[in-house]
């Protein structure tokens, strides 16, 4: 079964009295355990498509299926619940909760899911160690570097063990060493835990790591390239 399936999905915005098709009739299947990049220039519709897949936004046309489940008729809280249990997000600007420590941020999604405290701590510690940020648990976001914050955000996304991780330009604010380390770690999670990753990026480093590269232009898929080995 596909992890993600899009059928003729469009998203329209009004800008200055003109209707803009940010995503235009996109149909797409992404298999479970895939490692996919949405590549393209700014304004090509990558982030909008990720938001639609993650249920942060609703399509104006078409249908989206996550893990075989249609999101079309879901109410607001049902979509939130779907995100909580099946989707992990990594955003470009880290987006940690400023009043929570690194550990609390990483635990936050599991806490909402109702995962017991000991299990939460165990999972976070393991992911922190894998990400090389062990020992930073008690620091608050303002006390962490950009790379460290992004790794905490990744830890938050993967520690809750979602079926899908959606990452919107995760390396955009990182130096190349941090970006490489982050991609290595995501690749490892993908291979070891079978988590489906979908990135939006125009960073060649991320594109090079992908097993499948979907190129977008003007809201449409302009190319869809599957690579045999990376």
């Amino acid at each position: 079964m596909d992890a993600i399936r899009l059928q003729n999905v469009s998203k329209l915005y009004e800008e200055g009295g003109t209707i803009v098709r940010a995503v235009d009739a996109v149909s797409l299947n992404i298999a479970k355990g895939d490692f996919v990049t949405l590549a393209g220039p700014s304004g090509s519709g990558k982030t909008t498509l990720l938001n639609l897949i993650g249920g942060l936004d609703r399509p104006d046309e078409g249908e989206i299926y996550i893990d075989g489940e249609s999101t079309h008729d879901k109410k607001d809280d049902e979509l939130t619940d779907l995100r909580l249990h099946k989707v992990g997000f990594v955003f470009q600007a880290y987006n940690l909760v400023p009043v929570l420590s690194a550990l609390e941020n990483a635990e936050f999604v599991m806490l909402i899911q109702g995962v017991p405290p000991a299990e939460r701590e165990r999972r976070v510690k393991a992911v922190f160690d894998e990400l090389g940020i062990g020992g930073l648990e008690d620091r608050f976001p303002t006390q962490l570097s950009g790379g460290q914050q992004q790794r905490v955000a990744v830890a938050r996304a993967v520690a809750s063990r979602p079926a899908i991780v959606l990452a919107d330009e995760p390396t955009a604010n990182l130096d190349s060493d941090s970006a490489k380390a982050l991609m290595r770690m995501m690749r490892m999670l993908n291979e070891e835990q079978g988590v489906t990753f979908v990135f939006s990026t125009h960073d060649p480093l991320v594109i090079d790591q992908a097993r499948r590269v979907i190129r977008m232009r003007d809201g449409r898929i302009s190319a869809d390239e599957v690579r045999q080995a990376v």
Partner: peptide, 16 residues
């Protein structure tokens, strides 16, 4: 506002 958007994105429902 951005923070509330983030929380909702992470799975915090309306009651949360």
């Amino acid at each position: 506002v951005r923070e509330f958007g983030l929380l909702r994105a992470l799975g915090v429902n309306r009651m949360g």
